[in-house]
Design a protein around this nucleic acid. Structure first.
Length: 119
RNA sequence: ACCGCAGGCCUCCUUAUCGCUCCGCCUUGGCGGAGAGGAAAGUCCGGACACCAUAGCGCAGCAUAGCGGGUAACGCCCGUCGCUCCGAUUUAUCAGAGUAGGACCAGUGCAACAGAAAGCAAGUACAGUUCGGCUGUAGUGAAACCAGGUAAACUCUAUGCGGUGCAACGCCAUGUAAACCAACGUUUAGGAUAGCGCGUCCAAGUUGGAGGGUAGGCGGAUUGAGCGAUGCAGUAAUGCAUCGUCUAGAUUAAUGAUAGGGCACGACAGAAUCCGGCUUAUGGCCUGCUUUUUAU
RNA sequence: UGGCCUAUGGUGUAACUGGCAACACAUCUGAUUUUGGUUCAGAAGAGUCUAGGUUCGAUCCCUAGUAGGCCAA
């Protein structure tokens, strides 16, 4: 995944690590998104994306939002001012309105910056 | 042309750059290939597959219901008969649509109001009469001496149905029990199963043996009652034969972004074990048929 | 993924085996009171979640859908 970039990004798959991330990780909020992250070294960068079923009952909308968030993180990585991160992160979209790529960008940039500051 | 009905097809296309999931090749980052639906949905039916004697047998229970056929199977599909509806007129026909349509000569129940009377009977008024009673008419009602009506009332008849579900189930690895297996022992009391009876299984203790559960990973998992073409059989659903073809397989869960062009300016909507149906949501195009109106 | 249940005035509940949809609270009007509350008298407000079917006639029986809720792993 993102193999040409400076850092390799893994998919966050394990149920155990996700549960530990949510109980021990740092919770950052910026409307309409939320980031749960830690700074665990050695494992590289692993990311997950989630949308509440309560907010969007249709699967088509949930898939769309997750694709938009993935795309936006890819754009963030390709930027020249990006500094590599190590750890686990989970992005959650937390609003009832269907977003555009711009609103995702406005929310994600400060979240990533605060995550970098934690390193 | 409009309305209604039936059947079939498609689900924005294309170019460039970057990016995602799986597979193959060389090899450690490149190349090549493939990548959501007709409903993937609701979970309403039917199977495949897997495990379980707490799985068996009988009763009970549940489902289906003209007749004939198709199918792995079905509550599905096809044909056909009857009944009902629709619009029309030729008043008995038609394009169509619907139809849980077996049996009240086995038994039980039910029928508000009205009515003399709604079920082991009793009996109103008038007329006729062969004056024994019978026959006809009236009035109430959805239905009235006639082996009445009602089974989407209980029930009966025929046919079918064991249960649980891929988070089934199998393997790997970690490896501590009060948990497992076999033998001995023993009360026949209690417990176990969607209901009941029979059956079956089960405890504490001793000895010996063996490796389980949970968290995690892998398999199950995509080549199948598959799809397409042609021919034959059949009114049709469908079946058979030959040839061709491989078409998602994820597991916090893959299809996007940017720029350019075109048009009808894109509806409903995203696979999670897999098939056959049904139902619901929904954009566009084509073909055929009935009725009506207009024109020729 | 699989299974189960519910829906009736604004709210909470009834309606027996199919036969005029009932009750309480809330609302409104009037009386009592200096005023308000309490109390008393009266009124309005539904066609039973939606669409079909069976029936002479459905809240009730059957089928399909909609919305909400619950359970197991």
């Amino acid at each position: 995944m993102f193999s040409k970039q400076r850092t390799e990004i893994k998919r966050l798959k394990s149920k155990q690590t996700i549960e530990r991330l949510f109980s021990e990780g740092t919770h950052l909020g910026k409307r309409p998104m939320k980031l749960v992250c830690d700074t665990q070294k050695g494992g590289g960068l692993a990311l997950g994306f989630g949308v509440s079923k309560r907010m969007f009952p249709r699967a088509v909308d949930r898939n769309k939002i997750k694709r938009l968030m993935r795309e936006q993180y890819r754009i963030v990585c390709s930027d020249t001012s990006y500094t590599p991160i190590e750890g686990n992160g989970f992005f959650i979209y937390n609003s009832r309105e269907l977003p555009s790529l711009e609103t995702i960008e406005k929310a994600m940039l400060p979240l990533v910056k605060r995550w970098v500051d934690l390193q």
